[in-house]
């Protein structure tokens, strides 16, 4: 009898310990979390598989084209320079994280706006990512760039390198950016730098 009580107590204690571990130790966080590499506009972020550089940030109601693309809120256009390091790489994860840790995804509506990039090793690739966002997304927005596309449970880039680039938008600048009316010309993505691109 004593023996049975002791075994029962051990089993219950083991289950309790298991529960404590899953509840209080960040197991899922360490198992699933990507590796973030922080950067700022203009300086390259070196990931395991590619170098990511944000070369420009624009806010506009209109992206030029025929027809021009209108934003539901405003377009936040992020110009990128990407280069695969060791082997050909496809990147499909480009999204924003704002000051409140909310996510905003890229739009495929603008005529030359990219949502993914196929990189040849060592060949620089230029692309502009266009986000149609409301005003609250702008302050402290950071661009995330990685291989797996964003989905609601962020499973496509677990344990992968992610570039996290601060776009340098201060909360005090948001009103002025929102009021801007100038249209932005987005150039075709590819191995040709935007200033030389035909389209």
């Amino acid at each position: 009898m004593r023996r049975a009580v002791a075994s029962a107590a051990i089993v219950i204690a083991a289950m309790g310990l298991g529960r404590l571990i899953t509840d209080h130790l960040p197991t899922t966080e360490t198992a699933d979390k990507p590796f973030f590499h922080d950067g700022a506009v203009g300086s390259p972020v070196a990931l395991d598989y590619a170098d990511v550089t944000v070369t420009g940030v624009h806010v506009t109601p209109t992206i030029m084209g025929n027809p021009a693309s209108a934003a539901g809120g405003r377009w936040l256009v992020v110009d990128l320079e990407l280069k695969a390091r060791h082997s050909p790489t496809s990147m499909a994860g480009f999204f924003l994280v704002d000051a409140n840790d909310r996510r905003w995804i890229a739009s495929s509506r603008g005529p030359e706006c990219a949502t993914a990039a196929n990189l040849s090793t060592g060949v620089r690739h230029w692309a502009s990512i266009c986000f149609d966002v409301p005003k609250e997304a702008l302050a402290d927005a950071r661009l995330m760039a990685t291989r797996g596309a964003w989905d609601s449970h962020e499973a496509q880039f677990r344990r992968d390198d992610v570039a996290r680039v601060d776009l340098g938008i201060a909360g005090s600048e948001v009103d002025a950016l929102w009021a801007q009316k100038d249209a932005v010309n987005v150039k075709e993505a590819g191995p040709v730098p935007p200033e030389e691109a035909q389209r």
């Binding site: 021009a68 693309s69 539901g72 909310r102 890229a106 495929s108 509506r109 149609d132 409301p134 997304a137």
Partner: peptide, 18 residues
Amino acid sequence: YFVEDATQMREFNPGLTY
């Protein structure tokens, strides 16, 4: 299709009305 510019909507961000 967004009526303003006839482009196809494939992704949505919250809080915007189209």
